[in-house]
Amino acid sequence: MIAYEIERWTRSGKATLVAAAAVLLVLAMLPALANGLLIDKLTTLFIYILLAVMWNLLAGYAGLVSVGQQAFFGVGGYLALRLVDAGMTPYLALVVGAVGAGIVAIPISSFALRLKGGEFAIAMWVIAEALRIVVMFDPLVQGETGTSLLALNALDPDLRRNLTYWLGLGSLALILSVTYWLLRSRIGAAAQAIRDDEEAAASIGIDVMRIKQIIFVLAAFGCALAGTIWLASAITFLPRTNFGVQWTVFMLFMVLVGGLRTFEGPIIGAVIFFLLQTAFGGLGVWYLTGLGVIAVCFALYLPEGLWGLWRQRIGIDLLSVGVLFRPSGDRPTP
């Protein structure tokens, strides 16, 4: 018999979780202290982190590179609008709308996931465009004109701001926890195996299609949550904006800069993107050009992103999803 221990929680990992819980608590109490502008800004940051983490789950961990994730961002918002129109409480509709978008993702997955690589990526974009056009036919949306979530306008602006903020924070906590748990589970291991070699994954008993579907639907739900929170903070629903490909471009940027295939990278990427947007967003075309240049430079010269660089240099994972094998007698690492 081999004497060994399996290590899944490093000391720095446990410390990170405690720190994350503390940050969450402080953030939850922030509306009582901070001004409205900061609350609005942070809500936007939560949306970006959600998007980045979901795209990394899909592309980084499962190898499903999609340029059509705006499909779910848009569908989530649209379903929320429809539910409010049917009489549902707005904040409940935002959550139920996102769940609905996750359900819409199931039939989409059953044909999109038959495609591989570039074909899948482009097909997702086509699906997003097709959904945008379908949604525009709904009289409620009024074509390109769009509509507004007027029910939210009826609320006190401060209350609305805070509720949207808490919804964003709660969604972020939920999605980060579920993603972390999933990546550490056997499903996460199977997704990575599929990403690395689909045929070999099948040869060790992994049901490739089922695993891809689980990841795809979760990523769709997360993007849809981001979409409904954004709807709540922007109030307006414009098909061209809510189904815009720029959302996927942002996701790509955040994940590339922060670090593909790491749990921490996309969060850092989202913070950097948020800061860049806050500082330079007013520059218009030059801002977008700058983002493009940065993304290309990262893809060419630092494909593992900032967190990848940190890992190489410092060698410390904060939130590892891996499994460490330790023969008994070895000293555990700090």
Partner: peptide, 17 residues
């Protein structure tokens, strides 16, 4: 091999599935 995973993770995934 699953290049993005460790040797142990490769083998453990096979045992799980």
């Amino acid at each position: 091999p699953f290049l993005g995973m460790s040797v142990f993770e490769n083998t453990m995934t096979a045992a799980q599935f």
